[in-house]
Design a binder for these strands. Structure first.
Lengths: 100, 100
DNA sequence: ACAATAGGCAACTAAAAGGTTGCCTGTCAA
DNA sequence: TTGACAGGCAACCTTTTAGTTGCCTATTGT
């Protein structure tokens, strides 16, 4: 999941779906002109495995939808832990720097 | 930055520093017993490059401090974009699934 | 002073990620 | 019904990343 987010191209794909949900592979390929169709497919596959994107086959098109649930979980579970300790960490950092 | 977070070992290091800030390399090595000292060093280097960890040399020890600022930025800038669209994406997803 | 401790640097290896090409399958429209 | 379009699959190559080993430097305690 963090790994899926660790690639700029994949983040761009997510951004594209955020702008317009339900795009086909073709459409998404136009957004990453430096990659071949298969390259984009692989990235979408990773996003799908990470459950960040959900697909629906409609005829000969495969539509891609953003799944907001897991990214929400990350925000709540992992990042909030660090939010909670933000001020404490900052003051410890400051103290350590001043002491030297 | 996302890349730095994309490794379980590095996340463990961050967690360790969150529990107790200002640990030395030695101490952090004990937390990842499967890795050699140099392995841990490399991970810490990556966290440092991503500005997630700040270090202070004190005598022959190098103390590692969690830097809460960038992780906070990620939470605010990137994730909040997706938070904002959470409900919209969910309903689009639902509609697409029902239509098929 | 010097042995032990804490860490840094560089070269090397192994594994994983990113990307491509070639070909195959299914669907639609004329 | 057949040609064009949308996509899938598998093999392959290249680059990056993760990890190791070996050796070097600096600090500290006795």
């Amino acid at each position: 999941m963090f790994k899926a987010l660790a690639d700029e191209g994949r983040r761009q794909l997510l951004d594209a779906l955020r702008e317009r949900n339900g795009q086909s592979l073709q459409e998404l390929c136009e957004l990453l002109p430096d990659l071949t169709r298969q390259g984009v497919t692989k990235h979408l596959r990773i996003l799908e495995d990470a459950n960040l994107v959900v697909t629906v086959k409609r005829g000969r098109h495969k539509l891609h939808y953003l799944n907001p649930v897991p990214i929400n979980e990350i925000a709540e579970r992992w990042l909030s832990n660090y939010e909670r300790d933000k001020l404490r960490a900052l003051s410890a950092l400051k103290a350590a720097l001043e002491e030297s």
